[in-house]
Amino acid sequence: MLHSIDFTIPTGRIYGLVGHNGAGKTTAINALLGLISYEGDVKVLGLNPFANRSKLMLDTAFISDVASLPRFLKVTELLSLVEDMHPNFNRQKAEQILADGDIRDNVKIKSLSKGMMAQLHLAIVMAIDAKLLVLDEPTLGLDITFRKKFYRRLVEDYMSENRSILITTHQVDEIEHLLTDLIFIRDGRIVLDANMDDISNRYIQILVLPEVSEEAMAHNPIFVTKQMGQDIMIFDDLEEGIATSFGTISTPSISDLFVALMEKKDASQKSANMGATK
């Protein structure tokens, strides 16, 4: 269940939607795609998605988090059907993408492996000239080579200033370099919505010198861990002058920041619960 979440995705941006299992990512995506009803105001490409799903799909492409291709069809039959049903589908482009893999045209989809099925779905989606592309765990079950190739192709061949992409994945570090914006979602609430530049300015990670560890702790890091006996702390909005005096500064990775913000919330919830118990 989502609780009053509010965000806007401008054109030309690649958004990452990150959260634990059950955090509400797929629910949010389903609402955006008009697949479920909702309370509140949702506009996607100027349309109410639930009332106008079929119209919205002319300019939106998506892959859900489960393998969903109809398995009774052959690959070529599926391409023909999509070609006839979707005016913005370019069959030639799909076939070009598929030519890089080892999927044959005349095989039944049910005989494809999970990875091949994902490749086929990605090829179809990337051959749709959409304004919004929504990818819910798009590379689940794929090997690292294909994942890398897919994301490279997504940025080089697909992304343009007229398009927006929304991606959810658990393999966040793999998409870190291509994201322009990031949303963290937890228990149906947004806990972070910022562009990557703001994030790198706002959050800093410090490999803290042992002798200033206590002093650094006094500045309320949002996350603390140890590596090779040395403290690593993540701070929110710490002045640069102070930060440099604590040790080596770097930008936290998405996964580190995610853990930091999730644990921070855990800690605040725990203390809230403890307060209530008392």
Binding site: L33, L35, R53, S54, M57, V66, P70, R71, V82, M85
Partner: peptide, 20 residues
């Protein structure tokens, strides 16, 4: 039948309404 193998989600990604 479209619900078989989760294919409903695929058909819903096409610009065709459920009534159609």
């Amino acid at each position: 039948a479209d619900r078989k193998d989760n294919a409903l989600l695929f058909w819903k990604s096409m610009p065709v309404s459920d009534l159609q």
